[in-house]
């Protein structure tokens, strides 16, 4: 357990905490129960997650994800299906990823490293959303399938373009 000094607050709360809190609140506002309950859950989930991550040693910091995931699951269960909830849910997922990737106490690149982790998931999410809404069937599952297919193709092309990935071990005769 670490001490509650200035360094603790610095490594616990960064810009990603604010983004996570806002996205939880927006997502909670779409739930079928009163907004006050959603707001309490959102604040508790985001704050508790950041506090746990800051308090525990770096090797156990991942446990901070549990409160955030729990609140997200509760809010998702209570949110109806639709285009707007789908967009907000995806954005909330991205905010959670950003919060996971950010290390507020780390220097340098605490924020920039976090943003770097979002590029591919955000692209995949955008593809899936556009496919789901623009395809004639209008089914979300079809959009997800199309995005996954495109993503797999991109990954195969990327791996084939870098042969170093396949010959990592030096040959016995070299």
């Amino acid at each position: 357990m670490r001490r509650l000094d200035a360094a603790f607050w610095r490594r616990s709360f960064g810009p990603a905490y604010g983004l996570l809190l806002v996205s939880f609140l927006v997502f909670g506002s779409l739930a079928s129960w009163p907004f006050v309950l959603s707001a309490v859950l959102a604040v508790a989930g985001a704050t508790l997650a950041s506090l746990v991550r800051g308090l525990l040693p770096a090797s156990s910091g991942f446990l901070g994800l549990l409160p955030a995931l729990g609140v997200l699951a509760i809010l998702a269960v209570e949110t109806p299906v639709g285009v707007v909830p789908a967009v907000v849910a995806g954005a909330t997922g991205l905010a959670l990823l950003f919060w996971c990737a950010e290390e507020p106490g780390r220097a340098p690149g605490a924020l920039r490293r976090g943003l770097g982790a979002l590029a591919i998931p955000a692209l995949g999410f955008a593809l899936a959303l556009l496919s789901a809404d623009l395809l004639p069937s209008g089914l979300g599952t079809v959009g997800v399938a199309v995005a996954l297919l495109l993503f797999s193709l991109a990954a195969v092309v990327l791996l084939l373009a870098s042969p170093r990935s396949f010959d990592r071990d030096p040959s016995a005769s070299s």
Binding site: A76, A89, G90, L118, G124
Partner: peptide
């Protein structure tokens, strides 16, 4: 439940 939540 919005399916897109799990996508990212």
């Amino acid at each position: 439940m919005p399916l897109f939540l799990a996508f990212p």
